[in-house]
Structure formats: C-alpha cells, structure tokens
Simulated assay, not measured.
Amino acid sequence: MWAYWLGAIPVTVEEILKACPRQRVTALSRGALSYRTAGQGPAVVFLHGLAGNSLSWARQFPALAARYRIVAWDAPGFGLSDAVEPDVEVFADVLRELLDHLGCGPAAVAGHSMGGVVAARLAAGHPDKVARLVLSCSHAGYGESADSPMQPRVEQRVRELASVGAAEYGLIRARGLFPAGFADKEAMGVAAGVAAEARPEGIRSSTRMLQLADNRSVLPRLEMPVLVITGERDPVVKPHLRDELRALTPQARHIEMPGAGHAPYLEYPAAYNAILDEFLSPG
C-alpha cells in the first residue's frame, strides 16, 4: 500500500484498488459502519454513489492525502456496513455519528450522486458538521410518497446480481456510468471491480432511500460554501435533474466537466482533483 503514497504508479486495476487504505469498521448506534482513511490535515469526507463504495475514490486518495485527512465511507448496506432503514435522515444521522466518532467535524463533505443527497441532508440538519459541501453528479432526491411502490428496477438488479454473478454485474453497472465511446479500460476496470461488491440489502435500502428523499426545500437554504459538479455527458443524472439541482443552489459555484459522464472522479481524475483542491483551499 505505502508504495502508492511514495510515488510508485500502479499499472493494474488490482494494484490501484489494493493501494487504497485498509478498510476499518466501527460500531455505531445503528450497527457496523466501514470506512477508509488516510492523510493528515483538514478533513474531507467522500460519499460514494449507488454503484460504489469506499474504493470508488481510489484516484483521490493518493492525490489529496498529502494535504487533507481523507475519509471515505461505505454507506449503510455497502462494504462491511450494516444496512439501515431506507430514510435519508437515518443515512445522514449515521454519517453524523461517523464524523463524531472520528472527531473530524466540521469537515468538507463531498457527496457523489446518492452520496450528494445524503451530504446535503447532513449539511441542512447539522451545518456545524459541514464546513464545505461538494455535490458531484447529484440531484435533490426523487421525492416520492411513502406509500409509493418500490421501483421495479430494484428487484431486477438484485435478480441480475444473483443470475450473472458479481463480476459480470459489476461490469454491467460500470458500463452504465460512462458516456458512449469511453475507452479508458483502467477506469472501467476500477468501476467494475467496485460495483461487483454490491450487496442485495444495499441495493434495496439505498435505492428506496433515494426514491423517498426530497431535498428541494433545504438546498436553497444551505449557507456554507457549496460546489456543484456536473458531467456534460452524464448518462445517469438526467438533464432535468441536473438543471433542477442547479436552480435549487443559486448560492453555489457550478462547474460542468466537458465530456464527463457519471464518474468524473475516475474518468478525469486530475481535473476532478484540481477542482476539489481549489474549492477546499481557497485563496
């Protein structure tokens, strides 16, 4: 692992993933929560999306850990984290407990896609915990009623995972993150390896959480510095959701990454990390 931080360049997907900090597990009030951490300095907490886990940030750890204390969680139902109720307030409270456990608040919180929905809810409910907020390829939540049925694609994905196996499932999910014609096999391999670790309980609870979550009333009221990053060719967050998030955060800085799909942290890591670094260390 330490060779990565000392400058050796991994040349395979396996080496990239193995070079990430080791997975740690802590007991919180709602069960086990796993995460990875490296570096020293101001805390930056990364929250992954539906097809991710703490390994999603394999290209951020080595670039940013020299200047920041990086923490990447495994959301409830992912990695070694126990699943919780499919409620965005519960997800945000688990995150609050993790920050308190690690003693790293107020922190910069960078939430990607699903992670952005959770990050925004934490920032709204506990602004003392969030010094800066990054919403990466995210949205406001789907805001459906509690009596709405589970989306059919949820059980379809669970059945797909069981029928094709983890490796093929990971590849299918990874292909859906990138725009047509994307040819970086290393980025694709990392995304597939991460997505292959999905668990049925995580798929179910997190998708339902997003289905019910609604941050439309809280996003305009956020008072900490906010950065919204979007991908020009994002195949996951549709244009109307992207535009809605922009409209709901007029106080934020908005950056669209040209040519990027739904995983700019893997597709264009140097540019993505530079955007983060500038926002995290202004002036």
Score class of each variant (00 low, 15 high):
54 S>A: 15
24 R>D: 06
275 I>P: 07
201 E>D: 03
23 Q>C: 11
95 L>I: 13
175 R>P: 09
145 S>N: 14
85 E>I: 06
75 A>N: 15
51 A>Y: 03
196 A>F: 05
111 G>M: 15
163 S>M: 11
56 S>W: 14
177 L>F: 05
106 P>Y: 04
115 G>V: 01
260 A>L: 03
3 A>K: 14
226 V>S: 03
243 D>C: 09
205 S>R: 12
166 A>M: 13
104 C>D: 05
92 A>L: 05
117 V>Q: 00
47 L>K: 07
48 H>R: 09
222 L>H: 08
183 A>S: 15
268 Y>W: 11
32 A>W: 14
194 V>P: 11
216 R>Q: 03
249 T>A: 13
266 L>H: 04
18 K>M: 08
220 P>V: 01
238 K>M: 12
110 A>V: 03
246 R>T: 06
249 T>I: 07
37 T>K: 14
281 S>K: 12
78 F>S: 07
25 V>L: 13
63 A>F: 08
216 R>V: 00
249 T>V: 02
190 V>A: 07
132 R>D: 07
14 E>R: 06
80 L>F: 11
191 A>R: 13
256 E>G: 03
218 V>S: 00
188 M>R: 14
102 L>P: 08
168 E>D: 10
220 P>L: 02
53 N>M: 06
6 L>S: 15
136 S>T: 01
130 V>D: 00
186 E>N: 12
281 S>P: 02
37 T>D: 12
126 H>L: 00
165 G>E: 09
88 V>A: 10
2 W>P: 11
264 P>V: 03
108 A>Q: 09
111 G>E: 11
166 A>D: 15
217 S>Q: 04
48 H>S: 01
159 R>Q: 12
147 D>F: 12
173 R>I: 06
115 G>K: 04
47 L>G: 05
172 I>L: 15
178 F>S: 08
7 G>D: 09
127 P>S: 12
29 S>K: 04
175 R>V: 05
8 A>F: 14
20 C>S: 13
164 V>G: 07
2 W>M: 15
230 T>G: 03
280 L>D: 12
132 R>E: 07
208 R>I: 01
88 V>M: 07
156 Q>G: 02
257 M>F: 00
235 P>S: 04
65 A>G: 08
132 R>P: 10
100 D>Q: 12
